[in-house]
């Protein structure tokens, strides 16, 4: 059966049919948008925690580190209760839409981006601090400089976040509903095919997903290695 799956995966990729194409595109859209939003929030948050001393800072760091392991279904349940009609944001009508899936994935990815960028920025700050103070930089002014100079590490962190977003199924299943043609993504399609006992197809979809994620990672790796070698 497993030999079969590679054949299935190959034929899925070769005869990319409309519904699979839609599923792949939606998967990428949802996860990329989620990672982007999480980056816009998480990197400044991580840098801020690295830069500023405030009461409860230790608690924030512990919480961010712990939330990196937040089970996707828990995030999904939380977002479901939030977006459900009976919930506080029910009026928005976002439940069972790609938007809901983005929100759930942002919650999953944000702690990873914030916690890991906090570490990296703190490390860099140790190296730069005296020069920054000498230049008369405020902490707010240090933030963009540190984030830009940590860009290669941040790219790796971004990929870790994308990996988590594209691989999880619990949250998108719960808040997306796995609706055919609307909220079905790679992982929920895999769950569905598995539950139909169509294991070769499920595994084939898994291989397609893996191939995509690997292609994205390889591209990012090559780009950052080239740039890194250039930057020293």
């Amino acid at each position: 059966m497993e030999e079969n799956a590679f054949y299935v995966a190959l034929s899925l990729l070769v005869n990319l049919d409309a519904s699979l194409y839609q599923i792949v595109v939606l998967s990428l859209q949802v996860s990329l948008v989620a990672v982007l939003i999480a980056a816009l929030l998480g990197f400044p948050l991580g840098a801020a925690v690295a830069l500023w001393q405030f009461p409860g800072r230790g608690g924030v760091i512990v919480a961010l580190n712990a939330l990196m392991g937040l089970p996707p279904v828990v995030a999904g349940l939380g977002v479901y209760l939030l977006l459900s009609r009976a919930g506080p944001l029910g009026e928005l009508g976002l439940l069972f839409t790609p938007g809901a899936m983005v929100i759930a994935q942002v919650i999953l990815v944000l702690p990873i981006l914030a916690a890991l960028s906090r570490q990296k920025v703190e490390e860099l700050l140790g190296e730069y601090r005296e020069q920054f103070v000498s230049l008369g930089m405020s902490k707010a002014r240090m933030m963009p400089t540190l984030l830009w100079d940590a860009r290669f590490a941040l790219l790796t962190i971004l990929l870790a976040g994308f990996g988590r977003a594209s691989a999880e199924v619990g949250a998108v299943m719960m808040v997306g509903g796995n609706i055919d043609g609307v909220t079905r993504v790679m992982t929920t399609a895999i769950v569905l095919e598995t539950s139909k006992g169509a294991l070769p197809l499920a595994l084939g979809l898994g291989i397609v997903l893996l191939t995509l994620v690997m292609a994205i990672n390889a591209t990012a790796y090559i780009l950052s290695e080239t740039a890194k070698r250039r930057m020293g």
């Binding site: 982007l36 790609p98 569905l192 139909k196």
Partner: peptide
């Protein structure tokens, strides 16, 4: 630009639809 484009894709969906809660047996 990317976020806007994707946002549009997300919202540019038919209004004439209903959400049906049903069982896995009918679906599968």
């Amino acid at each position: 630009a990317a976020v806007t484009t994707m946002g549009l894709t997300f919202s540019a969906q038919a209004d004439d639809y209903i959400t049906l809660a049903s069982t896995t047996s009918t679906q599968n």
